[in-house]
Amino acid sequence: MKLVTFKKNEQDRLGVKVNEGIIDIREALLSHPLDTVPSNIMEVIAGGYQAVTLLNSYINELKVDGDQTYLLAENDLIWGPCVTQPSKIICVGLNYRKHADETNAAYPEVPILFNKFNNTLTGHRNDIGVPNVTEKLDYEVELGVVIGKKAKNVSKEEALDYVFGYCTANDLSARDLQLRTQQWLLGKTCDDFSPIGPYLVTSDEIEDPQNLNLRTVVNGEIRQNSNTSDMIFSCDEIISYISKHMTLEPGDLILTGTPEGVVLGYPEEKQVYIQPGDEVIVEIEGLGSLSNKFVEESSSY
């Protein structure tokens, strides 16, 4: 199942992608009420397999009814982040072999972890302001892993059983801020630095998260083009490792690293960072394409 979040009347709404478009679940519930059906993305994640099953059955009943007042076209949506309120956003640095090679970095012996915050979340087709405090804004296509069950001290063998689903993510990075100190946080946590979506795809639709093509396209030019098989630490290793140090909760988002092709990996004379007016598309096989245009940062709200 492909789940989406979109904005309506400045509120987050749950949508489900079907062949005909996007079903607005809250709108459908007005004319076809059913108390057990979850009405927002965090409820679905917390409800796990049972919630997805209920939602799927409800959608099948809607199709039989024939009413389409709740059906929306994707082009008409104001997209939100496909996960709206993760309690944690945990990122893995230097997790692709060729990316480590291009930046002349040694392969890490254990996962390099850092965090982001919810202020960084935004959605598909939303404009992103280039912060005035950076001159080196970089893109990073990444596989996002969304936890579906509380996980503590889980084994590598069982780790993927704790995954609710996967999404496409862009771990935007202000390189000059990131490398200003030994701590990367400042360069990773500016507003809207974690667009995710367009879909949260349930784990049953992804046969092997370690065999997914992923790429980045900037203004029509392919910049990153790789496969998750190049990860140093696989998704199950990452989940197990994190769970040994902290409890993972339903809705927690793990960004699993980026492959080669980032601006930072180019020779200095060829480094052209993201500028206002640029369009960046990151896409992962089976998870969809996430597109954002970059604009000048607003000075106030």
Rank of each mutant, 00 (worst) to 15 (best):
K2F: 06
L3V: 10
V4S: 04
V4M: 02
F6A: 03
Q11H: 03
R13E: 03
K17Y: 03
G21I: 01
L30E: 14
L30F: 09
L30N: 13
P33Y: 06
D35Q: 05
T36K: 04
V37E: 11
P38K: 10
S39W: 00
I41M: 10
A46P: 00
Q50R: 15
S57G: 09
V64Y: 01
Q68Y: 14
A73G: 08
E74G: 03
D76Q: 04
V83I: 15
C91Q: 12
L94N: 01
A100H: 04
N104V: 11
E109P: 01
V110R: 00
F114T: 04
N115C: 13
N118V: 11
H124E: 06
D127Q: 06
I128Y: 04
G129V: 04
G129C: 08
N132E: 12
V133Q: 12
V133M: 10
E135Q: 13
Y139K: 08
V141N: 11
L143Y: 01
V146G: 08
I147E: 05
I147C: 08
I147R: 03
V154R: 01
E158K: 07
L160C: 15
Y162T: 14
Y162K: 12
F164M: 14
G165E: 12
S173P: 05
R175M: 09
D176L: 14
W184M: 07
L185D: 10
K188M: 05
K188V: 06
T189D: 05
V201I: 14
V201H: 08
T202G: 15
S203P: 13
E205P: 11
I206L: 07
E207L: 08
D208P: 09
P209D: 02
Q210G: 07
L212Q: 11
N213P: 03
L214M: 15
N219R: 02
G220C: 15
I222T: 15
I222K: 12
D236H: 01
Y241P: 05
T247A: 01
G257W: 02
T258N: 02
P259T: 13
E260S: 12
E260A: 12
G261L: 09
V263L: 10
L264T: 13
E269M: 14
Q271S: 15
I274N: 10
I274F: 08
P276K: 09
G277Y: 05
D278W: 04
E279P: 01
I281E: 04
I284H: 07
E285I: 10
G288P: 06
G288W: 12
S289R: 14
L290S: 00
S291K: 11
N292G: 04
V295L: 07
E296R: 07
S299C: 02
